[in-house]
Design a protein around this nucleic acid. Structure first.
Lengths: 239, 239
DNA sequence: CGTGCTCTTGACAGTAGTCAAGATGAGTGG
DNA sequence: CCACTCATCTTGACTACTGTCAAGAGCACG
């Protein structure tokens, strides 16, 4: 059930079969969630965390005027709110962008894990640190990259994160979100995202239709977005 | 030596005297760093982490064109690169914005701590989760708040973070950075920061001169910046 | 084969960036 | 003790990127 989560971890450190079983036993109930449903609201008291098994979810915050900013787009294998284990309440909400399958992991089991399995504890800690690294890259994007570069960098990131959990096919990957959702990731308006995608399409860097992204020229896309994958820590080593 | 770090932790959870001593013993060498010095460069192999004792430091990334984005401004008591413990290399650089005093904590000692002190491990994990929460708030700011609101929210955040470590005097606090540094935090240009500060000054919300900020009307400032302190997890509870 | 939602495009508006020049101010050296 | 210097701050004029508003096209679903 947690294969994608294991793939994600194993891209960064060795995880023994025994450890994998310990992680598998963390999982409690599994749930199907329809599209566009807020699963956790900012400020809710949490006693469990959500592991995304299938589909896309996001963390978001919104402002009084109704504008919304997504702070991370989650792919299968992501622990969507593991940080809720130590924060106890989230500073943001979490919603599904597509129909999803999620697993709930009780915080008591995670706490027990921290008492008995230091290496696995460090790996869970690592995954929250990778989330933070993604946040930092988005801060850079939002603060300093223009719309085209920001969008290019985004598609590079999603390509690598999905490849890590085995969800790419060649240079293509599923991304069943609207241009409006994309705008909320990129700090733009849907209209401007549309124009930006047109630029990327006309430069023959990507195609994005039928809920799929096809990267036509990764190298050029990465150059345009000044994308560097270091922040994803895609290196297997002792953590 | 680590009083401010302890204040930061104790604002979130109880830390016994015994635990405090264990944390104190994590500290290795202490160093004075002049202003504007890059202490850690992105990609360096790390074997220790930096605890900021005095002064201001920041995490930053820059782009080819020379533009720079600060992803977090650090105050005394912050573990500037604790995430380096699990990441092993940083995705960003770290520099001093003022003269600083820093303590180095060897990763070996942190790893040993994770094997013997699960509660302290969770607290260290918590501090990296708070950093991530700050990143998310900045993502929101950069993505959706205009210059004035973003700047207002920034001054609110700094007020609370400095108060947590006992560095405010009434509604004033030291902030020895330039408008250029501020621009790199806020994703703006120095010129526009200047104009934005003028607005805040004219509305009698803040004063910022002589390297000090005085908040004249926190309530109005927070309202303008749509600032909500939830993301700082300033609540004492079992973590 | 409607009904919405999403995508697309054009025209116009507004926030923030760029460039430039003068003011201010702290630190330095004569 | 007083220029002098350099960084920083301030302001104006102009530019440009992105947002807003609006309307029509495309498409999936019932």
């Amino acid at each position: 059930m947690i294969e994608k989560f294991l793939m994600k971890l194993r891209a960064r450190d060795a995880v023994s079969e025994e450890e994998a079983m310990v992680l598998e036993r963390l999982v409690g109930r599994v749930q199907e969630v329809p599209s566009d449903k807020t699963v956790i609201r900012a400020g809710d008291e949490l006693t469990e965390s959500v592991l995304l098994l299938d589909g896309l979810m996001c963390r978001y915050k919104d402002l009084r005027d109704g504008s919304r900013q997504i702070s991370e787009l989650h792919v299968p294998g992501d622990f969507v709110d593991l940080h809720g284990f130590s924060l106890k309440k989230l500073d943001h909400s979490i919603m599904s962008l597509t129909p999803c399958r999620i697993a709930y992991v009780p915080h008591q089991r995670i706490e027990a894990l921290t008492e008995t399995h230091p290496h696995l504890t460090r790996l869970l800690w690592l995954t929250t640190n990778i989330d933070a690294a993604i946040h930092r890259e988005w801060v850079l994007s939002l603060g300093r990259r223009n719309a085209v570069a920001r969008t290019a960098a985004f598609f590079c990131e999603m390509y690598l994160r999905l490849r890590t959990v085995g969800m790419t096919e060649g240079m293509a990957y599923p991304l069943a979100i609207t241009q409006g959702d994309l705008a909320e990731c990129l700090g733009l308006t849907a209209v401007h995202v549309n124009r930006t995608l047109k630029v990327l399409r006309e430069r023959e860097l990507i195609e994005f239709r039928n809920r799929r992204v096809r990267v036509l020229n990764f190298e050029a896309l990465a150059k345009l977005g000044e994308f560097n994958d270091d922040y994803l820590s895609l290196e297997q080593r002792h953590r």
